[in-house]
Design a protein around this nucleic acid. Structure first.
Lengths: 341, 341
DNA sequence: ATGAAAGCGCTAACAA
DNA sequence: TTGTTAGCGCTTTCAT
């Protein structure tokens, strides 16, 4: 291992003090032009670069942001990550990333590991298990140590920090309303994320829309499917009720699976069965028929999150009040829903 | 910002030296049981955790691996990332990740930034632009500074380090052979990645298979489509030749797009037109008909890469010869190809 | 059993 | 204009 060159090495070469070299390289006016020149030349030709660890220790900042994401194979989170990465790298921050895999333990472990001196801030969307457990000590500790946090999507009211969410309730309200206005008489809701804050909000929005049209909320039309249960079986039971003519799925994979089943059952889509879902992933544009979706603008969420966090990190002193930013979703109409007249 | 507690603080509390506290917390036998006990208790109750930056500076390691990936929205790279993350976190390493976005400049910039003291090793798949430019100074410098690199998938012979690739040539050979054996008379190849090392190898494999069956290689059946060109137009021109009855696509998105066009043209799939492609993403299982694919086992590649790198980092002294590991792909047959008799 | 001192690589206040 | 010193938080010899 060829050792990297340090200030000390340069100092020895020119028989000057380390401080002189430091100042010369920082172009200090205290140093003579001649000395500066020769030192800078030498440093450049020897590829001197300051050791960032030493600088971190000195400045107590690491120009590093931690990103904790439940699952990178989920297109929403992947998009958010892209957004975060874009802004962070623009502003000269590194990303230390962890995939919590929906596990509380992994989330806690990483954050614990990260927060001790290697992190200026944290961006996180809670693991499912964490939202179930409702145990947020690890995050509260992090905040207590002065490390700012920005939460997105899966957030918790218990944690006082900046947040970015979409208007889940309103989006579900809007999508349900759209289904009804397009002619659906009985809309069922399919949730495999009833453990999540966002899942619950979406159910609320669905109910609200029904109420607006004076349609009774039937609990049996709200299908909550756990990880252990068999999705196909659960859905088939519901679809035994032939009067159902609309499906609101709370995320992408449920929609794609539901589509497969509905096609199997020989429904005409969208005439006899309409489908809409949350999260606008690639899949939805490529299945047949294509599925209408609520886009959460993941990349934008990521960019906003990184922006807010870096703002917070670099203007710590300001002590601005914490803020929750709501990103508006958009409904993208495709073949699985009837157009409004 | 509540300051984190340091050894100094503890030392002051008990009126002992910093060294004593350090030893006590490391359970040194040099320290009396009594002293150790009270110091450890105090540290625990005050949530003392050593500052990792200070330790990094001291130990010259950061327990951090850099990961440079061209595009995280690509399911192959996402899978690799998951694999890397799994092993790295198991072994106590953090991941600093960068999305190069296929840009040479971004790749160079990040690596330059990262390598100065904040990285024990690097895992990278080259950006497209880097493979075009064939300029690898940034990587050679990194190696020269003693930072080990593991390259995967898009590698270069110019860089002497550990590598992980799939048997691209052989896989294309096998897939083409499969198409021919299943009855295809004229197989075309669609590449939107002809700039990449892997793209070139796959073309070789395709040619080799034709030769094995004494079929003339027709250059016009090898369709190379650049980013600027319109995929649909280019493909339609080729498909004007109605005798083509098989398509080997070098990656997922080309296959999905080709499928769409072929369906538009009212071909029966797979009878009149068979389709197979590289990279086994989710999309392929959800389109109609489903598309046969060559799985590169991305997660396994990631796991292997992380394993090799950490091995290298932790046993630097061993100076083992560099090694290129070849991961065997598997062909997953779906509806877009005819079964072999 | 405990402490002093040096050092990891760097910056900055203060001296010379 | 240059150098000395102290210090960021920690470990590790080498005294005591």
């Amino acid at each position: 291992m060829k050792k990297r060159i340090t200030l000390k090495d340069i100092a020895k070469t020119f028989d000057v003090s380390i401080a002189t070299v430091s100042k010369a390289l920082n172009d200090s006016h205290e140093i003579s032009t001649k000395t500066k020149f020769k030192i800078q030349e030498y440093a450049k030709s020897h590829h001197y670069k300051p050791n960032v660890t030493a600088l971190s220790l000195l400045n107590k900042n690491t120009k590093t942001i931690g990103v904790v994401i439940p699952n990178i194979m989920n297109s929403f989170f992947a998009k958010v990550f892209v957004g975060i990465e874009k802004i962070a790298s623009q502003k000269g921050y590194h990303l230390v990333s962890c995939i919590s895999n929906e596990s509380y333990e992994k989330e806690v472990k990483t954050i614990d590991l990260l927060k001790h001196g290697s992190l200026d801030g944290l961006i996180i969307s809670l693991a499912e298990e964490t939202q179930v457990k409702q145990n947020f000590k690890h995050l509260k500790n992090t905040l207590n140590e002065g490390i700012p946090i920005v939460m997105f999507d899966r957030v918790s009211e218990d944690i006082v920090c900046d947040k970015i969410v979409v208007n889940d309730l309103e989006s579900a309200f809007h999508a349900t309303k759209h289904l009804i206005l397009s002619g659906c008489k009985r809309v069922a809701l399919i949730s495999v994320i009833d453990n999540l804050s966002v899942g619950k909000l979406r159910v609320e929005g669905y109910k609200k829309a029904l109420q607006e049209f004076n349609i009774d909320v039937e609990e049996k039309l709200i299908v909550r499917i756990g990880h252990r249960e068999d999705f196909d079986t659960a859905l088939k039971i519901v679809l035994a009720d032939k009067s159902i003519d609309g499906l609101l799925c709370l995320e992408e994979s449920a929609a794609v699976n539901a589509l497969r089943l509905v096609k199997q059952m020989k429904y005409n889509i969208p005439e006899e069965m309409s489908l809409a879902c949350f999260t606008n992933g690639k899949l939805l544009q490529h299945v047949t028929p294509t599925i209408s979706a609520i886009s959460q603008h993941g990349k934008h969420i990521g960019e906003t999150a990184a922006g807010m966090l870096i703002e917070r990190i670099e203007n710590e002193a300001d002590n601005k009040p914490y803020f929750t930013k709501v990103i508006k979703t958009s409904l993208i109409e495709r073949e699985s829903t009837k157009p409004l007249k």
